[in-house]
Amino acid sequence: MKKRGVGIGCMWYGIGNTGLPNPAGAFVDWKDDATVSLMVGAADIGQGSNTVLAQIVAEELGVGYEDVLVTSADTGVTPDGGATSASRQTYISGNAAHLAAQEAKKVVLEEAKEMFGVEKNQVIIRDRRVFVKGQEENYKSLEEVIGGCRRKGKMTIGHGWFNPDTTGLDGETGAGSPYDTYAFATQIVEVEVDTETGQVEVLQIIAAHDVGRAINPLQVEGQIEGGSTMGLGLALYEEVKVLDGKIKTPSFATYLIPTSMDVPTMHPLIVEEPAESGPFGAKGVGEPALIPTSAAIANAVFNAVGIRITELPITPEKVLDQLAENQ
Protein backbone atom coordinates (compact mmCIF):
# COMPACT_ATOMS: atom_id res chain seq x y z
CA MET A 1 0.00 0.00 0.00
CA LYS A 2 1.19 3.51 -0.73
CA LYS A 3 0.77 6.04 2.05
CA ARG A 4 1.40 9.74 1.90
CA GLY A 5 2.76 11.96 4.64
CA VAL A 6 3.89 15.52 5.21
CA GLY A 7 6.87 16.55 7.33
CA ILE A 8 8.62 19.69 8.39
CA GLY A 9 12.28 20.49 8.93
CA CYS A 10 13.76 23.76 10.11
CA MET A 11 17.26 25.08 10.42
CA TRP A 12 19.46 28.00 11.32
CA TYR A 13 22.93 28.58 10.03
CA GLY A 14 25.58 31.08 11.12
CA ILE A 15 27.21 32.79 8.14
CA GLY A 16 31.02 32.62 8.09
CA ASN A 17 33.55 30.76 10.22
CA THR A 18 32.62 29.93 13.80
CA GLY A 19 33.98 32.54 16.22
CA LEU A 20 37.14 33.02 14.20
CA PRO A 21 38.39 35.90 12.07
CA ASN A 22 37.60 35.20 8.41
CA PRO A 23 38.07 38.37 6.43
CA ALA A 24 37.88 38.92 2.69
CA GLY A 25 39.24 41.72 0.53
CA ALA A 26 38.39 43.40 -2.76
CA PHE A 27 39.87 45.96 -5.16
CA VAL A 28 37.86 48.21 -7.44
CA ASP A 29 39.31 50.11 -10.39
CA TRP A 30 36.81 52.54 -11.90
CA LYS A 31 38.06 53.27 -15.41
CA ASP A 32 37.95 56.35 -17.64
CA ASP A 33 34.83 55.18 -19.48
CA ALA A 34 33.07 54.37 -16.17
CA THR A 35 33.44 50.60 -16.60
CA VAL A 36 34.79 48.78 -13.59
CA SER A 37 37.32 46.08 -12.81
CA LEU A 38 36.54 44.23 -9.62
CA MET A 39 39.23 41.99 -8.16
CA VAL A 40 38.20 39.59 -5.43
CA GLY A 41 39.79 36.54 -3.86
CA ALA A 42 36.48 34.70 -3.64
CA ALA A 43 36.46 31.51 -5.72
CA ASP A 44 33.34 31.07 -7.81
CA ILE A 45 32.87 27.30 -7.89
CA GLY A 46 29.59 27.48 -9.75
CA GLN A 47 27.45 29.06 -7.06
CA GLY A 48 27.74 32.39 -8.86
CA SER A 49 29.73 34.70 -6.57
CA ASN A 50 31.30 36.58 -9.50
CA THR A 51 27.81 37.54 -10.68
CA VAL A 52 26.53 38.55 -7.26
CA LEU A 53 29.64 40.59 -6.42
CA ALA A 54 29.38 42.42 -9.75
CA GLN A 55 25.77 43.25 -8.95
CA ILE A 56 26.71 44.69 -5.56
CA VAL A 57 29.43 46.88 -7.09
CA ALA A 58 27.24 47.98 -10.02
CA GLU A 59 24.48 48.96 -7.60
CA GLU A 60 26.81 51.05 -5.46
CA LEU A 61 28.51 52.78 -8.38
CA GLY A 62 25.37 53.50 -10.37
CA VAL A 63 26.63 51.62 -13.43
CA GLY A 64 25.22 48.64 -15.29
CA TYR A 65 25.88 45.04 -14.31
CA GLU A 66 27.56 44.51 -17.68
CA ASP A 67 29.95 47.37 -16.87
CA VAL A 68 31.62 45.34 -14.14
CA LEU A 69 34.28 42.81 -15.09
CA VAL A 70 35.23 40.44 -12.28
CA THR A 71 38.65 38.88 -11.87
CA SER A 72 38.53 36.41 -9.03
CA ALA A 73 40.60 33.91 -7.10
CA ASP A 74 44.07 34.67 -8.47
CA THR A 75 46.68 35.10 -5.75
CA GLY A 76 48.84 37.12 -8.12
CA VAL A 77 46.14 39.73 -8.65
CA THR A 78 43.39 39.55 -6.06
CA PRO A 79 43.44 40.00 -2.30
CA ASP A 80 42.60 37.03 -0.08
CA GLY A 81 38.89 36.25 -0.10
CA GLY A 82 39.11 33.34 2.31
CA ALA A 83 37.47 30.05 1.51
CA THR A 84 34.34 29.56 -0.53
CA SER A 85 32.74 27.80 2.41
CA ALA A 86 30.49 28.50 5.38
CA SER A 87 28.02 30.19 2.98
CA ARG A 88 30.16 33.28 3.45
CA GLN A 89 31.09 34.79 0.08
CA THR A 90 27.96 36.85 -0.66
CA TYR A 91 28.05 38.23 2.86
CA ILE A 92 31.79 38.67 3.49
CA SER A 93 33.29 39.20 0.03
CA GLY A 94 30.07 41.04 -0.81
CA ASN A 95 30.76 43.51 1.98
CA ALA A 96 34.40 43.82 0.94
CA ALA A 97 33.42 44.56 -2.67
CA HIS A 98 30.78 47.01 -1.46
CA LEU A 99 33.35 48.86 0.67
CA ALA A 100 35.87 48.94 -2.18
CA ALA A 101 33.22 50.43 -4.45
CA GLN A 102 32.31 53.02 -1.83
CA GLU A 103 35.94 54.09 -1.53
CA ALA A 104 36.26 54.59 -5.29
CA LYS A 105 32.93 56.38 -5.34
CA LYS A 106 34.06 58.91 -2.74
CA VAL A 107 36.57 60.36 -5.21
CA VAL A 108 33.90 60.74 -7.88
CA LEU A 109 31.42 62.30 -5.48
CA GLU A 110 34.05 64.78 -4.33
CA GLU A 111 34.68 65.81 -7.92
CA ALA A 112 30.95 66.04 -8.68
CA LYS A 113 30.43 68.19 -5.61
CA GLU A 114 32.92 70.71 -6.96
CA MET A 115 31.48 70.55 -10.50
CA PHE A 116 27.94 71.20 -9.26
CA GLY A 117 28.91 73.47 -6.36
CA VAL A 118 26.81 71.52 -3.85
CA GLU A 119 27.40 69.32 -0.81
CA LYS A 120 28.61 65.77 -1.45
CA ASN A 121 25.57 64.11 0.06
CA GLN A 122 23.32 65.85 -2.48
CA VAL A 123 25.04 64.11 -5.41
CA ILE A 124 23.44 60.99 -6.86
CA ILE A 125 24.90 58.53 -9.36
CA ARG A 126 22.44 56.36 -11.25
CA ASP A 127 22.44 54.72 -14.69
CA ARG A 128 25.86 56.22 -15.40
CA ARG A 129 24.53 59.73 -14.77
CA VAL A 130 25.66 62.12 -12.07
CA PHE A 131 23.21 64.72 -10.80
CA VAL A 132 22.10 66.78 -7.85
CA LYS A 133 19.19 65.35 -5.92
CA GLY A 134 15.94 66.54 -7.48
CA GLN A 135 17.66 67.89 -10.61
CA GLU A 136 18.04 64.73 -12.63
CA GLU A 137 17.54 66.53 -15.95
CA ASN A 138 20.66 68.60 -15.33
CA TYR A 139 23.02 65.63 -15.27
CA LYS A 140 26.63 65.02 -16.22
CA SER A 141 27.83 61.70 -17.56
CA LEU A 142 30.01 59.56 -15.32
CA GLU A 143 32.80 59.71 -17.93
CA GLU A 144 32.74 63.50 -17.65
CA VAL A 145 33.08 63.46 -13.87
CA ILE A 146 35.73 60.73 -13.88
CA GLY A 147 37.50 62.75 -16.58
CA GLY A 148 37.46 65.68 -14.16
CA CYS A 149 39.18 63.48 -11.59
CA ARG A 150 41.82 62.45 -14.11
CA ARG A 151 42.60 66.03 -15.08
CA LYS A 152 43.51 66.65 -11.46
CA GLY A 153 45.60 63.48 -11.36
CA LYS A 154 43.11 61.63 -9.17
CA MET A 155 42.64 57.89 -9.57
CA THR A 156 39.25 56.34 -8.92
CA ILE A 157 40.26 53.13 -7.20
CA GLY A 158 39.17 51.60 -3.95
CA HIS A 159 39.96 48.71 -1.72
CA GLY A 160 37.82 47.16 0.93
CA TRP A 161 37.96 44.36 3.41
CA PHE A 162 35.44 42.97 5.80
CA ASN A 163 35.61 40.69 8.78
CA PRO A 164 32.38 39.76 10.54
CA ASP A 165 31.93 41.00 14.09
CA THR A 166 32.23 37.85 16.18
CA THR A 167 33.70 36.65 19.45
CA GLY A 168 35.49 33.39 20.07
CA LEU A 169 33.77 30.61 21.98
CA ASP A 170 34.75 30.05 25.59
CA GLY A 171 36.70 26.79 25.87
CA GLU A 172 34.64 25.45 28.78
CA THR A 173 31.15 26.88 28.22
CA GLY A 174 31.13 27.67 24.51
CA ALA A 175 29.71 31.10 25.36
CA GLY A 176 30.20 33.73 22.69
CA SER A 177 28.81 35.37 19.57
CA PRO A 178 30.32 33.11 16.91
CA TYR A 179 28.52 34.66 13.92
CA ASP A 180 27.44 38.16 13.01
CA THR A 181 24.31 36.97 11.22
CA TYR A 182 22.28 33.80 10.76
CA ALA A 183 20.19 32.38 7.90
CA PHE A 184 16.95 30.55 8.68
CA ALA A 185 14.79 28.12 6.77
CA THR A 186 11.73 25.91 6.89
CA GLN A 187 11.15 23.06 4.49
CA ILE A 188 7.93 21.09 4.23
CA VAL A 189 7.97 17.91 2.15
CA GLU A 190 5.39 15.45 0.99
CA VAL A 191 6.40 11.80 0.67
CA GLU A 192 4.81 8.59 -0.45
CA VAL A 193 5.88 5.42 1.34
CA ASP A 194 5.31 2.05 -0.29
CA THR A 195 4.64 -0.29 2.62
CA GLU A 196 5.29 -3.36 0.44
CA THR A 197 8.72 -2.35 -0.84
CA GLY A 198 9.77 0.18 1.78
CA GLN A 199 10.48 2.67 -0.99
CA VAL A 200 10.16 6.35 -0.06
CA GLU A 201 9.36 8.78 -2.83
CA VAL A 202 9.50 12.51 -2.23
CA LEU A 203 6.70 14.19 -4.17
CA GLN A 204 7.10 17.87 -3.32
CA ILE A 205 9.58 20.06 -1.49
CA ILE A 206 8.53 23.46 -0.21
CA ALA A 207 11.63 25.36 0.84
CA ALA A 208 11.32 28.79 2.45
CA HIS A 209 14.68 30.44 3.07
CA ASP A 210 15.48 33.67 4.84
CA VAL A 211 18.45 34.91 2.81
CA GLY A 212 18.45 38.50 4.10
CA ARG A 213 18.29 39.97 0.63
CA ALA A 214 18.30 37.98 -2.59
CA ILE A 215 20.95 39.76 -4.66
CA ASN A 216 20.05 37.47 -7.59
CA PRO A 217 16.73 35.68 -7.01
CA LEU A 218 17.22 33.14 -9.82
CA GLN A 219 20.57 32.10 -8.38
CA VAL A 220 19.06 31.89 -4.89
CA GLU A 221 16.40 29.55 -6.26
CA GLY A 222 19.14 27.55 -7.95
CA GLN A 223 20.90 27.13 -4.61
CA ILE A 224 17.67 26.13 -2.88
CA GLU A 225 16.75 23.57 -5.53
CA GLY A 226 20.27 22.17 -5.85
CA GLY A 227 20.81 22.10 -2.10
CA SER A 228 17.58 20.34 -1.31
CA THR A 229 18.33 17.81 -4.05
CA MET A 230 21.65 17.05 -2.37
CA GLY A 231 19.68 16.84 0.88
CA LEU A 232 17.33 14.40 -0.80
CA GLY A 233 20.35 12.26 -1.70
CA LEU A 234 21.54 12.43 1.90
CA ALA A 235 18.09 11.41 3.11
CA LEU A 236 17.40 8.48 0.81
CA TYR A 237 20.19 7.27 -1.45
CA GLU A 238 23.72 8.27 -0.64
CA GLU A 239 26.17 6.38 1.52
CA VAL A 240 29.88 5.89 1.15
CA LYS A 241 30.18 2.28 2.24
CA VAL A 242 33.45 1.62 4.02
CA LEU A 243 34.71 -1.79 5.09
CA ASP A 244 37.93 -1.93 7.12
CA GLY A 245 38.84 1.50 5.86
CA LYS A 246 38.23 0.61 2.22
CA ILE A 247 35.63 2.50 0.20
CA LYS A 248 33.33 -0.03 -1.45
CA THR A 249 31.46 2.56 -3.51
CA PRO A 250 34.13 4.43 -5.50
CA SER A 251 32.04 5.13 -8.62
CA PHE A 252 28.77 6.70 -9.70
CA ALA A 253 27.53 3.18 -10.43
CA THR A 254 27.90 2.20 -6.78
CA TYR A 255 27.51 5.60 -5.12
CA LEU A 256 24.12 6.88 -6.19
CA ILE A 257 23.32 10.57 -6.31
CA PRO A 258 19.89 11.86 -7.33
CA THR A 259 19.17 11.89 -11.06
CA SER A 260 16.56 13.99 -12.84
CA MET A 261 14.09 11.13 -12.28
CA ASP A 262 14.38 11.39 -8.49
CA VAL A 263 13.68 15.07 -8.13
CA PRO A 264 10.27 16.12 -6.84
CA THR A 265 8.34 19.26 -7.63
CA MET A 266 10.25 22.12 -6.05
CA HIS A 267 8.76 25.23 -4.49
CA PRO A 268 11.64 27.55 -3.61
CA LEU A 269 10.43 30.51 -1.54
CA ILE A 270 12.57 33.51 -0.75
CA VAL A 271 12.12 35.31 2.56
CA GLU A 272 14.03 38.56 3.00
CA GLU A 273 14.73 39.63 6.57
CA PRO A 274 17.74 41.85 6.02
CA ALA A 275 20.97 41.45 7.94
CA GLU A 276 22.03 44.88 9.16
CA SER A 277 25.65 44.03 8.51
CA GLY A 278 25.08 42.39 5.11
CA PRO A 279 25.66 43.98 1.70
CA PHE A 280 22.23 45.45 0.94
CA GLY A 281 21.02 43.13 3.71
CA ALA A 282 22.24 39.85 2.19
CA LYS A 283 23.17 36.79 4.25
CA GLY A 284 23.92 33.45 2.54
CA VAL A 285 22.10 30.39 1.23
CA GLY A 286 24.55 27.82 -0.19
CA GLU A 287 24.53 25.40 2.71
CA PRO A 288 21.17 26.20 4.37
CA ALA A 289 19.44 24.79 1.29
CA LEU A 290 20.57 21.25 2.16
CA ILE A 291 20.32 21.28 5.93
CA PRO A 292 16.63 20.68 6.77
CA THR A 293 15.75 18.34 3.88
CA SER A 294 16.64 14.97 5.39
CA ALA A 295 14.98 15.98 8.67
CA ALA A 296 11.78 16.99 6.89
CA ILE A 297 11.75 13.71 4.96
CA ALA A 298 12.22 11.66 8.14
CA ASN A 299 9.33 13.50 9.77
CA ALA A 300 7.17 12.99 6.69
CA VAL A 301 7.88 9.25 6.75
CA PHE A 302 6.68 9.19 10.34
CA ASN A 303 3.59 11.13 9.36
CA ALA A 304 2.91 8.65 6.55
CA VAL A 305 3.48 5.31 8.26
CA GLY A 306 4.23 5.98 11.93
CA ILE A 307 7.86 4.89 12.03
CA ARG A 308 10.90 6.84 13.21
CA ILE A 309 13.99 6.27 11.13
CA THR A 310 16.93 7.49 13.17
CA GLU A 311 19.74 6.36 10.89
CA LEU A 312 20.54 7.94 7.55
CA PRO A 313 20.02 7.13 4.77
CA ILE A 314 16.36 6.09 4.95
CA THR A 315 16.67 2.92 2.87
CA PRO A 316 13.81 0.57 1.95
CA GLU A 317 15.38 -2.09 4.22
CA LYS A 318 15.25 0.20 7.25
CA VAL A 319 11.66 1.20 6.47
CA LEU A 320 10.56 -2.44 6.12
CA ASP A 321 12.38 -3.44 9.31
CA GLN A 322 10.68 -0.67 11.28
CA LEU A 323 7.28 -1.42 9.78
CA ALA A 324 7.68 -5.07 10.77
CA GLU A 325 8.73 -4.08 14.28
CA ASN A 326 5.73 -1.81 14.66
CA GLN A 327 3.26 -4.54 13.87
Partner: peptide
Protein backbone atom coordinates in the same frame (compact mmCIF):
# COMPACT_ATOMS: atom_id res chain seq x y z
CA UNK B 1 12.65 46.74 1.27
CA UNK B 2 13.97 49.46 -1.02
CA UNK B 3 13.81 48.61 -4.72
CA UNK B 4 17.26 48.69 -6.27
CA UNK B 5 18.56 48.87 -9.84
CA UNK B 6 20.85 45.87 -10.14
CA UNK B 7 20.65 44.13 -6.78
CA UNK B 8 17.55 41.97 -6.63
CA UNK B 9 17.54 41.35 -10.37
CA UNK B 10 18.17 37.95 -11.92
CA UNK B 11 20.90 39.13 -14.27
CA UNK B 12 22.73 36.62 -16.48
CA UNK B 13 25.61 34.82 -14.86
CA UNK B 14 29.02 36.18 -15.83
CA UNK B 15 30.28 32.74 -16.86
Amino acid sequence: MQELNVVGKSVRRKD
